[in-house]
């Protein structure tokens, strides 16, 4: 493990001298990279729709990954970056549905269905006893 880490360091060490292209290269800070990649998994590619930008080969997806990593590195929170992208492309660009009046049914219907189901089942059970 130690040797592996040393090897990784050896490979990575010459890189910071050059400009990093964050479209393909992870952020040096693992915590920030984890934040960025969690976010990139939930941002939809506007070219190859249905794919997240983390797994798309489209140029525009690479451009978005670069901006996402740069903004996270600059201290933006993932929610701020998501909101920025939504301000450009609309809710559609995010795989994570927002909580707002128009999406309330999405969040409430499962709850209503669950309550209704429990009520129906409990009624039937009571009748048997």
């Amino acid at each position: 493990m130690r040797r592996l880490a040393a090897l990784a360091l050896l490979i990575a060490a010459p890189l910071p001298a050059q400009a990093q292209d964050y479209a393909e290269v992870a952020l040096p800070d693992p915590a920030q990279e984890a934040q960025a990649s969690r976010l990139m998994d939930t941002i939809r590619c506007v070219v190859c729709q249905g794919q997240p930008i983390s797994g798309s080969n489209a140029d525009l997806a690479g451009d978005m990954r670069r901006i996402v990593r740069e903004r996270i590195a600059a201290g933006d929170t993932p929610d701020e970056v998501r909101a920025w992208l939504i301000s450009k492309y609309g809710d559609w660009v995010s795989f994570k549905p927002q909580v707002k009046p128009a999406t309330l049914p999405l969040w409430l219907i499962p709850l209503v269905a669950l309550v209704l189901g429990i009520w129906l089942v409990s009624r039937r059970l009571r009748r048997h006893h």
């Binding site: 479209a23 506007v46 070219v47 140029d59 525009l60 451009d63 670069r66 901006i67 450009k88 609309g90």
Partner: peptide, 13 residues
């Protein structure tokens, strides 16, 4: 370069 303006406009192609 890097599609920065395109993304600013919300353009997808």
């Amino acid at each position: 370069e890097g599609g920065r303006a395109q993304i600013e406009f919300g353009s997808s192609g």
